[in-house]
């Protein structure tokens, strides 16, 4: 009986350990496969060149450029909003109030909305409602903003990444010891002065984590930008807010599904995937590093 219990225990523990190993192995296989197949194709010409010959040759510079501009615009929109919402939740609102509860629920649900629904929302709200409304009001009905463009894609992604920013910022606010605030209040500071001069300077790292995670998420999402601004192929780079653009993730999707010659596209496809993966991974890795430092502080606080 004792030996039986011991055996089952060992088997169970081993099984759980194996499950972990399988998950780690899955990650390793994906990374390994893409790194091996993508690395050899990578060159400066590939990074800095334009697609040629129906995307079977050449580089991906327009897609990289589009991704960077898209993510920058998104960051400009989501960071102020996300940080303000986190400050409200943690510094201004009465804890346990109905409104706080509803906002938290809304955030959790927002994070669970399928990416493709954000695409529909971007089309229905930003393009057909806001954009068409702007055309009507400012451009005399001429088509300017009532069509897919980089601004609308960026705003759609901003809504999608909002929960990421709020959650990361709030975690950082929580890591600021209560005593810091009490000292400031005792010295006669107003609530905003406490937020501005005590809490925010202490939470820069957390806000940075949220930003990085949002950027990494935004750079990888394809479904929300398919109908809101991303283009198959463009001979020029986006210059205005209502221009369409090329994007890395969408470029991968297009090359995978619409390529006239799959075998010829495969090497540069692998290289493009590799570039996107390196980009999102470097960002995620950075975020994990900063966050583990914040969490250590949270434990000691």
């Amino acid at each position: 009986m004792r030996r039986w219990i011991k055996f089952v225990g060992l088997a169970f523990t081993t099984l759980t350990g194996l499950a972990c190993l399988v998950i780690v192995a899955m990650l390793a296989i994906i990374l390994g496969n893409i790194a091996i197949n993508g690395w050899s194709i990578l060159s400066w010409e590939f990074i800095s060149g334009k697609p040629r010959a129906g995307m079977t040759e050449g580089g991906i510079f327009p897609a990289i450029f589009g991704t960077v501009v898209l993510v920058l615009l998104m960051t400009l929109a989501v960071i102020p909003l996300g940080v303000a919402a986190a400050i409200y939740l943690h510094e201004y609102a009465r804890q346990g109030s109905k409104l706080v509860h509803v906002v938290r629920l809304a955030l959790a649900n927002l994070a669970g909305v399928p990416a493709i629904v954000f695409g529909l929302f971007g089309l229905g709200f930003f393009i057909k409602f806001v954009g068409a409304g702007m055309d009507h009001a400012f451009f005399g009905g001429a088509l300017a903003f009532g069509q897919p463009g980089i601004l609308w894609a960026a705003l759609t992604l901003a809504v999608l990444t909002l929960p990421t920013v709020v959650v990361a910022t709030e975690e950082a606010l929580r890591a600021v010891p209560l005593s810091y605030r009490e000292v400031a209040y005792a010295a006669g500071a107003t609530r905003w002065q406490v937020v501005r001069h005590v809490v925010l300077p202490q939470s820069v790292a957390g806000i940075l984590t949220g930003t990085i995670l949002a950027v990494s998420r935004g750079a990888g999402e394809v479904a929300p930008i398919m109908f809101t601004g991303a283009a198959y192929y463009l001979p020029y780079l986006p210059k205005k807010l209502n221009d369409q653009f090329m994007e890395l993730g969408y470029h991968i999707y297009v090359m995978t599904t619409q390529s006239p010659d799959v075998e010829a596209t495969k090497p540069i496809l692998y290289a493009t995937v590799f570039v996107l993966l390196v980009l999102t991974f470097a960002l995620n890795f950075l975020a994990v590093l900063i966050r583990s430092r914040i969490r250590r502080r949270l434990r000691t606080a």
Binding site: L27, G220, G249, T256, T280
Partner: peptide, 20 residues
């Protein structure tokens, strides 16, 4: 962190990997 990194892989990359 490994699981967090797995969560960070864009779904288009996973799709590409599954397909290819």
């Amino acid at each position: 962190p490994v699981v967090e990194l797995l969560a960070g892989i864009p779904s288009v990359v996973i799709g590409f990997f599954a397909l290819m």
